[in-house]
């Protein structure tokens, strides 16, 4: 057989292996941070090396929404005026939340049910909840990208005017919170749903989430349909849509930015807590 060389000859002792930072680029960060970044990098790396499928997932559906709601209905005379400006923040919100949710939930459902791919990361020297947090961060990054890419796309397809620079801090804040909340919901779904129930769960969750999220109209316009307005108020997507409208359309009547921020912070905290708890029970419950 091959003669083993020195690197493999000596198993690392508990003293040497415990917390000694390996030399290199990440020398200045602690071992936990380094492992956390490595676990996060795995998701970024595997998504970035197959960009086509991710881009299709991010772009096709909102592009069609823009086209049908913004262009076709407008040309046919069903919508008028600045509907495009109202639609853009809604679609941005919808895309950010949905993409973050799907990119967190889908891989986890596969991982926990049959592939077991995540086990190597669960065996990394990192507290288990941080593996879940890495999933949340990755989902949030996907959502942020999916939301932000809507802005130029919307300006192009809908022909709306660009937003002033002052609107962007609010847009980024809401997109960040919306994406993180989506990732939190995704984490929860990912640890609860079994693969044979994917389609029914997604029909039960995604469609209502999409159509009660004030995506295509401002929430305030539902005043004449009170029950639907109440239902919409339970959906966190409403606060992402409304928050983005509040940041970009100062003259429109919408839920104020601070309310949206507060509700999203609460939704995020709840979804992340439930998701991480579910993640840990799956991570520690199975063989």
């Amino acid at each position: 057989m091959t003669t083993p060389t020195t690197t493999l000859n000596e198993p690392a002792g508990p003293e040497t292996s415990s917390d000694t930072a390996a030399p290199g680029r990440w020398q200045h960060v602690g071992p936990t941070t380094r492992t956390f970044l490595a676990v996060l990098w795995r998701d970024v790396f595997t998504t970035a090396r197959r960009p086509a499928s991710f881009l299709v997932q991010v772009i096709v559906q909102p592009l069609l929404l823009f086209f049908v709601f913004g262009k076709v209905l407008g040309e046919a005379g069903y919508t008028h005026g600045d509907f495009g400006a109202t639609l853009l923040p809604g679609v941005m919100a919808f895309n950010a939340l949905l993409v973050s949710l799907q990119n967190t939930a889908m891989p986890l459902i596969m991982d926990f049910s049959w592939s077991g791919e995540i086990e190597d990361r669960l065996l990394a020297p990192l507290p288990g909840p941080l593996v879940a947090v890495a999933k949340l961060v990755f989902g949030t990054l996907c959502g942020l990208f999916a939301g932000l890419v809507m802005a130029p796309l919307g300006f192009l397809v809908l022909g709306t005017t660009g937003w002033p620079l002052t609107a962007w801090p609010g847009v980024l804040l809401i997109l960040l919170l919306g994406s993180a909340t989506g990732a939190g919901i995704g984490l929860t779904l990912g640890t609860v749903v079994s693969p044979e129930r994917i389609s029914v769960t997604f029909s039960l969750v995604l469609a209502p989430l999409t159509f009660t999220g004030s995506v295509q109209y401002p929430w305030s316009s539902l005043g004449h349909l009170k029950w639907f307005q109440v239902v919409s108020a339970i959906n966190p997507l409403t606060y992402v849509s409304e928050g983005l409208r509040a940041a970009t359309l100062p003259n429109l009547r919408c839920i104020p930015l601070w309310t949206d921020t507060l509700v999203l912070l609460l939704a995020l905290a709840l979804a992340a807590a439930v998701g991480i708890k579910g993640f840990m029970s799956r991570a520690l419950g199975r063989r």
Binding site: T7, A22, G24, R25, W26, P31, A38, R42, A124
Partner: peptide
Amino acid sequence: LFHARYHGIARDE
């Protein structure tokens, strides 16, 4: 390589 990365092993090693 990713396994080693999770365990904080430097690139060259």
